[in-house]
């Protein structure tokens, strides 16, 4: 209990007639307060500690981020269906096989399949909404935004690994295959088709629009394969022009990933 002897400066103030400092001091000191015990203060301190700005060294941050992504990817592995891994792997094996045994144009092949694992990965990401698990996922400790991001990055990294492996194998079996050209035909569609698919899925949020992206891409690839002059023209551009295309593709992908994360998750509106 606090019963302070109140001292205050009445400054230049007018007081109502008959009210002296002593009178007021006596009067107000009567309204005492029981102070809460230590554990109440502890409670406040505990809840505040979450808000203290944290300063960490750069390598600690790096390690933390690394650990963070490994953990999130680990969880992503639970939710991405086995069929996804098997199907995409078969796709690449099939691609290698037709080039190897049937002599199909290696550039066309790698161009066609290079964005597919990622776009199929988008399907895995939005299936939570399709199957009505999203609402539950959103209520869990690890936010849905984090999970969507981790699933997308996992699919992206997986896709790049597959592309790299296929490129290396194609170069090994065919001496005429040029390493720069292979990189061009697999990275360009990967960035652009992925970006466009993300854009469309963030607008429509649908399973079917994502499927449509895949089919449209396949159709475009086939029509390109029918007229090799487009490919030849593409190959004839110089390195810097190509670099420009690639950079714009990457930027587009980053921009649309952000957009996708926002529209798909953050608004916290189910239905």
């Amino acid at each position: 209990m606090i019963k302070e002897e109140k001292k205050f400066d009445i400054e230049e103030m007018d007081l109502p007639e008959g009210m002296t400092t002593d009178y007021l001091s006596d009067l107000f000191s009567k309204y005492t307060v029981n102070m809460p015990d230590e554990c109440e203060i502890e409670r406040v301190i505990n809840s505040l500690s979450e808000y203290i700005p944290q300063k960490t060294k750069w390598y600690e941050k790096l390690y933390k981020n690394f650990k963070y992504f490994i953990e999130r990817w680990n969880i992503s592995l639970y939710s991405i269906s086995h069929a996804y891994w098997i199907f995409t792997l078969c796709l690449y094996i099939f691609g290698f096989y037709i080039v190897y045994s049937n002599g199909v144009n290696p550039y066309i092949t790698i161009m066609l399949i290079s964005p597919l694992p990622f776009v199929l990965g988008i399907l895995e990401v939005i299936k939570g909404r399709e199957e009505g698990v999203l609402e539950l996922e959103m209520s869990c400790r690890i936010s849905n935004r984090e999970m969507v991001f981790s699933k997308l990055t996992l699919a992206g990294i997986y896709n790049i690994i597959l592309n790299t492996l296929l490129s290396i194998m194609l170069i090994n079996i065919n001496e005429n295959v040029d390493i720069l050209k292979v990189t061009m035909v697999c990275l360009t569609p990967f960035t652009f088709v992925s970006a466009v698919s993300l854009y469309i899925c963030s607008k429509t949020r649908g399973y079917y629009s994502c499927m449509a992206c895949i089919f449209i891409w396949i159709a475009i690839s086939f029509s390109i394969s029918m007229s090799p002059k487009y490919i030849n023209r593409f190959f004839s551009i110089d390195f810097f022009q190509y670099l420009l295309i690639l950079i714009s593709g990457v930027l587009l992908l980053i921009f649309n990933t952000k957009k996708f994360l926002k529209t798909n998750v953050l608004e916290k509106e189910v239905n």
């Binding site: 307060v33 102070m35 406040v44 301190i45 505040l48 203290i52 700005p53 944290q54 300063k55």
Partner: peptide
């Protein structure tokens, strides 16, 4: 010190001002 991440500084600050705020 709080801005540089010190928890104990925050504790001191809370303890110092708790009574004023609470009362």
């Amino acid at each position: 010190e709080i801005l540089s991440g010190s928890k104990s500084a925050m504790e001191l600050l809370v303890k110092k001002y708790y009574n004023i705020v609470f009362s």
